[in-house]
Amino acid sequence: MLDSEVPQEGNSTLGGHRKAMYARGSDGKLHIVQSAGWEVEEIVTKQAVDDLLRLTEDARQRVLAGQTSPLEYHMYRVRMDVPLLAQASGIWQWRIRRHFRPPIFTGLSTSLLTTYADAMGISVEQLKKAD
């Protein structure tokens, strides 16, 4: 890649940041060039972000329909899945899945709710609602 070929087309997922890349200058040597972003990267990053947004929205709809608890919604909202939430909270995966059932979630103790809220970096009040 020549330094004139370093992509500068912009990448919305970089939020205005520029990243450093190595490219060949006119003297044949590679050196650092700042890139405003490459569309290819934007596409693959968006793909991952959009997939999580889809899971989050899907969970939110199911919370409204009474099919799952806000715990599942918040889990996806903070970009986690069940194995990661289990590692972050120290609660077994099958227990987390059980807590996705609305009647069981409603009866959870404050200390258990605090454990979940801490693992996800939100407050217990936030955790109880899906918005």
Binding site: M21, A23, Q47
Partner: peptide, 28 residues
């Protein structure tokens, strides 16, 4: 399938490789 191939490219570019999966930085 698209998530799978997207992952391959994300690992190649995303986590600061200078593009081309660290090949350019090693060339330097």
């Amino acid at each position: 399938s698209k998530m799978f191939i997207g992952q391959v490219v994300r690992m190649q570019e995303e986590i600061g490789t200078g593009g081309g999966g660290f090949r350019f930085i090693y060339a330097s």
